[in-house]
Design a protein around this nucleic acid. Sequence first.
RNA 1: GGCGCCAUGGUGUAAUUGGUUAACACGCCGCCCUCUCAAGGCGGAGAGUUCGGGUUCGAUCCCCGAUGGCGCUACCA
Length: 483
Amino acid sequence: MSENAVKPRVRFAPSPTGYLHVGGARTALFNWLFARHTGGTFILRIEDTDFERSSEEMVEGILDGMSWLGLNWDEGPFYQSKRLDLYRATAEKLLASGHAYRCFCTKEELEQRRAEATAAGRQPMYDRRCRTLSEETAKQRVAAGEMSALRFAVPEQGTTFFDDAVFGRIEFANAELEDFVLLRSDGIPTYHLSVVADDVDMRLTHIIRGADHLSNTPKQVLQYRALGAELPVFAHVPLILGPDKTRLSKRHGATSVLAYKDLGIVPEAFRNFLSLLGWSPEGDNKNREIFSSQEVTSLFSLSGISKSNAVFGNEKLAWYNQEYIRNYSAEMLLPLVEQEWVKAGIWPERPREELLSTLDLLKARARNLTDFAIAFRAYFSDEYEIDPTAAAKFLKDTQVRALLVELASRYMNATEFTEQSAETILRAFAEEKQVKPGLLINGARVALTGQAVAPSLFTVMMALGHQRVVKRLTAAEQIAVPA
RNA sequence: GGCGCCAUGGUGUAAUUGGUUAACACGCCGCCCUCUCAAGGCGGAGAGUUCGGGUUCGAUCCCCGAUGGCGCUACCA
């Protein structure tokens, strides 16, 4: 970076008309990564100029989602609803310089003309009829109390282009661009005005946003020019699609990132997954999948962003999640798991050391954090369900259940209770009763954990402790087995 | 409809910016391990790079066209 190069300033500018969805989260992440990589500034701006659809709850949700993902911002959150003066001043400037004009057409008139144009096979663009109104006429009509919106006067000739950091040069014929509304008749700015006014005012150097804004960009470029402002670097990020390759929406299941939190996804795993959706590192790191946040930060660059839309695949996310859980230390896992216990109403009153070693035992086969409160509930609570399928598979035989009860008394009378001794006792007992050890082992697993799936039985016994093992095996005969 | 963008196995991405048996990961299948399930180890199927032209000694890569997908087309953002 040269001497006088300014530090990058980027922003994430969600609209609180919906949750923080996966696509928005990825955009936020890329902005954050870019800012952190370059030592720049990451700004959060809430675009709430659509009063009808914006809500305070949505803002909360977005903020929560950001913090869940660990995306901290340096400035803001700024609310556009509180910066209306800036937009009006900007609009005033555009009007004064002849780049904008008042439009007295009503919404109804416009709709009607649009319908007519479409019916006649013409393009439904605004016909610019107010553009030729003289300044005096406009002033008179305003003075007479007529409502008016402010429109940008798009040049009728020529082309407008910009060089996108991801897509390269994008060019539009000005004739294709409509004289878009800057200020609604109620004085509230539209998106087109407020983005530019803010992006200029906040001295943003790079605009990293979804590719759905690609077509809007020339309208913004025109405003930058009109305002005599320097153009930022635009970097449009391809969109994230659902498995059916249509735009991600509610019907694809989890749409809010917070829904993934509820599903027991580890934020770090989610971030890792998200960062590799539409971006890939350069150099020797191409074939890696697991990156720490620090690594992604140091590797991130706009040039690694791909151009094509990506499908959000749940399987890969599940793999990441499992991978992170498995590789976390029990100490790192514990606070995350505790949240799940709280949700499930479990308060394991056991020494921290025991909890940690049990987490170590279980983490290899957890897929979600919720597993620790649901599938693995028996390890942390004495109130647990017996999985009917598991019972049907391994405890159907009443003989087996009777044997487990008998085995319980062997354990009760045992002088020592170690992994080795527990195994020795069981195997000796099996031989004595002329049954396969596996029969007892699998049955005991279900009785002890309620599940057909668990770590090695004797390790599980140690995790549960002598007393619980005896108690649960003794109760084996009472377990209800579906037919 | 108009305009814009994109196009590598089912999915996410690679391929020294024209020279590879088109690579890696997820997923899938099989085997090993084994008290179950994960994990792990080993092996396998799956794309000739959407299609058609061109340029070139040679195209995943460059050009043109078609097709498909996505986006924009509001006094939404």
